[in-house]
Amino acid sequence: MLHRNVLPREKEDKMRLPLKRYLTLLKTYLKPQWLRASLLAILLLTSIGLQLLGPQILRYFIDTAISGGATTSLVMAGVFFIGVALLNLGVSVATTYFSEYVAWTATNQLRADLVAHCLSLDMSFHKEHTPGELIERIDGDVDALSNFFSQFTLHLLNNTLVGIAILVLFFLVDWRVGVTMTAFAAIALLIMVLIQRRVVPFFVKLRQVNAEFSSFLGEQLAATED
Rank of each mutant, 00 (worst) to 15 (best):
L206Y: 14
G178P: 00
K31R: 15
E225P: 00
M76L: 12
K20Q: 15
I135H: 13
G90S: 12
P8M: 01
I135E: 10
V179H: 06
V91I: 15
R198I: 10
M192L: 15
L35W: 09
L7I: 12
L30Q: 12
E10T: 11
T46E: 08
L154K: 00
A185C: 06
L169F: 09
L40N: 08
T153Y: 08
L189P: 01
I164D: 04
T130K: 09
S67Q: 12
S47W: 04
P131K: 07
S214D: 14
D63G: 03
I57L: 15
V91A: 07
V142H: 08
R198W: 10
E12L: 09
E212W: 02
L89H: 08
G90E: 09
H126W: 07
Q109M: 14
N159I: 10
N158M: 10
Q109F: 05
E136Y: 07
R198Y: 08
R197Q: 10
I164Q: 03
A211S: 13
A106E: 01
A37F: 08
I48V: 13
L169A: 12
K205A: 13
L86P: 03
F149D: 00
A94M: 11
S92L: 12
S124K: 14
M76F: 10
S38Q: 07
F98Q: 07
T105Q: 10
L2A: 13
T182R: 00
F184M: 15
V173F: 11
L17C: 07
S124T: 15
E100Q: 10
I57Y: 13
A70M: 07
S214G: 02
L114P: 00
H155S: 13
A116T: 11
L44Q: 03
L2C: 09
Q220K: 11
E212P: 01
A41K: 03
M1Q: 10
V177H: 01
P131I: 03
L25C: 04
H126Y: 06
R111S: 02
L194I: 11
L110I: 13
F184T: 15
P131T: 05
F202S: 15
V204P: 00
C118T: 14
Y97R: 09
M15N: 13
L39N: 02
R36G: 09
Y101F: 10
R207T: 06
P55N: 02
T224F: 08
T28C: 07
A223F: 01
Q208H: 14
G132Y: 01
G69W: 03
E136W: 04
V168F: 09
A41P: 00
L157F: 11
V204W: 04
L43F: 07
